[in-house]
Amino acid sequence: MKPLRRADGTAPDSLPESVARNIRALDGGPAWLKSLPETLADVQAAWDLALDSPFDGGSCSWAGPARTGSAERSVLKVSFPHREARGEAEALRFWDGAGAVRLLRASEDGFALLLEECRPGATLRDSPGEPEDLLAAGLHVLAWLWRRPPEPGLDLESLETVATDWAGLVEERHPRLRPGADPHLVRTAVDLLGSLPRTAERSVVLHGDINPGNILAAERAPWLAIDPKPMVGDPGYDVWPLIMQIDPPMRLIDPLPALRRRFDTAAEILGEPADRLAAWSAARAVESAFDRYNIGSYPAGDAELAQAELLADVAGL
Rank of each mutant, 00 (worst) to 15 (best):
L124T: 10
H207P: 03
G129Q: 11
P81Y: 09
L311D: 11
L114P: 02
A136G: 13
L252Q: 10
G99L: 02
F80E: 02
P183Q: 05
H184I: 08
V141C: 15
G180K: 03
E116L: 00
E160M: 04
L317W: 15
R125N: 08
A50W: 04
A122K: 02
R6E: 13
P120A: 09
G99A: 04
P16R: 10
L259Q: 04
L252N: 12
G271D: 09
S35H: 15
P12G: 04
A315N: 11
D238I: 01
W32Q: 04
A312V: 13
E90Y: 12
A167E: 08
V170H: 07
P150T: 05
G99R: 00
L115K: 03
A50N: 07
P241E: 06
L76H: 00
A221F: 04
L192H: 07
D109K: 01
A221D: 14
R260M: 14
D234F: 05
I243R: 04
W223D: 07
L49W: 02
H140S: 10
G316P: 01
L156F: 04
W240T: 11
A266Y: 06
P65A: 06
D209P: 08
L192N: 14
L216W: 05
D182M: 08
D27I: 12
L224W: 07
V204C: 06
A225N: 02
R147M: 11
A85K: 07
L252T: 02
E219C: 07
R187K: 14
T164D: 13
A66Y: 06
A285P: 00
E304I: 02
A289Y: 12
P54S: 09
E160S: 07
G99Q: 00
P235E: 00
E116N: 03
L242T: 04
A91D: 11
D247F: 06
L159Q: 11
R260N: 12
R262L: 13
D275P: 01
A285S: 15
P149W: 01
M231G: 03
A279I: 00
S35F: 04
R198Q: 15
E108I: 06
N214M: 05
S79V: 03
P235K: 08
E108A: 15
S107E: 11
D264Q: 12
E171V: 10
G236C: 06
P12H: 14
A181E: 07
A122P: 05
L154K: 00
P152I: 14
